[in-house]
Amino acid sequence: MKELIKHARELLENGEVAAVIGYRQVSAKRTKPVIITDPEETSALVFNEYCLNNLAVYLTKARIKLLCKKNDKVLKLAITAKPCDVHSIVALIQENQIDRDTIHIISFNCHGVAKDFGFDFNGDNLASKCITCETHKPLYYDALFGEVKETPQASDTALARIKEIESMPHNERFEFFKSEFDKCIKCYACRAVCPLCYCQRCITDKTIPCWIETSSHQRGNFAWNVIRAFHLSGRCTGCGECDRACPADIPLSLINRKMSMEAKNLFSFVSGRSLETPTLVGSYNEKDNNELFM
């Protein structure tokens, strides 16, 4: 932690960055995001198994970009990111939402995080994405801290659930999603926490014409959740923040993970892993699998 604080402090003091986006501890098993511009406040920075938020969501916010403008100069923005959050940053760079040169990535060797605040960190309470995680060391970074430790063992229940849903007869699967989407209250927390839901104006906010009914009835909920799944297909990096944020406990990451599995199977593409390859939706190859077209 000392290294992290020292590094963040130096960045701010030397005027290399305008702000550091990081985590601060609020209770034993809970942290929250903090945006620091004063070097004195860097002492609050932490990194541990309760740094659940994917802070990449802040990088595209106009008000955060404004913080970087100082006396006609545009300074960098430092962000503390878990290796999986770096995937989101990569996806944002690939989609031309942020510039690699304006971001200073402070990352960590990571052995996983808890599934939610307040839980003990162990195999039973490991975040779903950490169970199958292959990037304990970030793929891109400007500063790296922390030792590699062993990730607790846990079984991939989410994958088992996906297989189970896949094997359901069509009508049963429809009933499953109907009952899940019925719980949706349309608070759009899933959209708010998603780093890749960066649209200035979301399709659901468009009223003339009204593509997605704002009513939180069955049709409106289906329209919203399905369009979100489509818009994230081949783009979602699997951070699982939508799942955690949902007050109605809808297993949104099952849908996103299933779509990611499809992208991998059909196009050998995994989002947010490489700055060298183009995005899946933004590239076209004649040899692409066309099984999907009817």
Partner: peptide, 16 residues
């Protein structure tokens, strides 16, 4: 401005 920078503009708070 502090909380304005943090808040992500969803309606979780209002709806629960």
């Amino acid at each position: 401005e502090g909380v304005g920078n943090l808040c992500l503009s969803c309606a979780q708070c209002a709806f629960v």
